[in-house]
Design a protein around this nucleic acid. Structure first.
Lengths: 162, 162
DNA sequence: GTCGGTGCAAATGCTTTGCATTGAT
DNA sequence: ATCAATGCAAAGCATTTGCACCGAC
């Protein structure tokens, strides 16, 4: 199963489609291309993901869905997340070694994240030059870059008084 | 338990000590400062770590030790790794969401890693400017930087023929 | 009507923990 | 001697999987 295939009639990348085509349509198309089915559960899960924070965890997603009255099983949530990863709609981000975190892959976040060590909030950041740095390093080593990730850990500054 | 305390007689940071003081001495001192014991198992584990690859996993460490005829329990390995992390001798690096990976914290690796997606080899890299980038981003957000990590995923270049 | 999908519960795999015993200081 | 450390086996947790039933195509 390779949902990342882009050699269909519309071969544009996700980046191009995000604005003009809703993600659910992208997903549906990728599924069909693999002979897989676009079920209500999968639609609901993608929908719920769109209403989550930038970076979320599978368990929180399930929790959120249950809170909204959806009846999905944990297994289906995990299975669908995996499908969305395969389809390059979702990507895993490594924040800590506890639970997997995910974020939408469209919009070409510069793969930069800032993790608040005090509040545990996570957000994407603009960190220019990473791509170039990555490519330079890979070129020097004679390797083909596949991806990269930059995570900053930070906390609130101490009160400026005293 | 706070092994990271550096307010003892010798208050220099690990970075200063790495060359002039063997890590086992550092560890021993930090343990003593906390009223903990420097056991043969702990010494052996630290020793085994020094002979591991730059980046290693707890399980591989245990395996390697068993291969060398040491008789440590899995529990002790995990417990000691945690102590070494507390003591800032070891640090966790996030490479994938499967298993935790560790590397020695001394030597001020620039917190850059390259992960081969084909062979799964992991090595540290020099990636200049990351610290500055981190500090700049944090300054803009009014946050205090605590740490950062840059991971590049790459594979062998396809054969240059054809 | 066919496969693939779903939910459930059991299984997995890494890591942690309770407890009785052992050992460093 | 004391109090922490060890080893074992059991427990925990996030995630995955087997299986019987269900439903999208």
């Amino acid at each position: 199963m390779d949902l990342s295939d882009t050699s269909s009639a519309r071969s544009s990348s996700l980046d191009d489609l995000e604005i003009i085509e809703p993600l659910c349509a992208v997903f549906r198309r990728r599924l069909k291309a693999e002979g897989l089915k676009y079920t209500p559960e999968r639609a609901q899960i993608l929908d719920a993901i769109l209403s989550m924070d930038d970076v979320f965890q599978a368990d929180r997603l399930l929790e959120s869905m249950k809170g909204q009255g959806f009846r999905v099983s944990r297994a289906t949530v995990y299975r669908t997340i995996k499908l969305l990863e395969d389809a390059k709609i979702l990507q895993q981000v490594l924040v800590d070694s506890e639970q997997a975190h995910y974020q939408l892959a469209y919009g070409t976040h510069s793969a930069g994240l800032i993790v608040r060590t005090d509040t545990h909030e996570i957000s994407s950041i603009e960190a220019p030059g990473l791509l170039e740095l990555r490519n330079k390093v890979c070129a020097e080593l004679g390797l083909k870059p596949e991806g990269h990730r930059f995570v900053i850990y930070a906390s609130a500054k101490p009160a400026p008084d005293a």
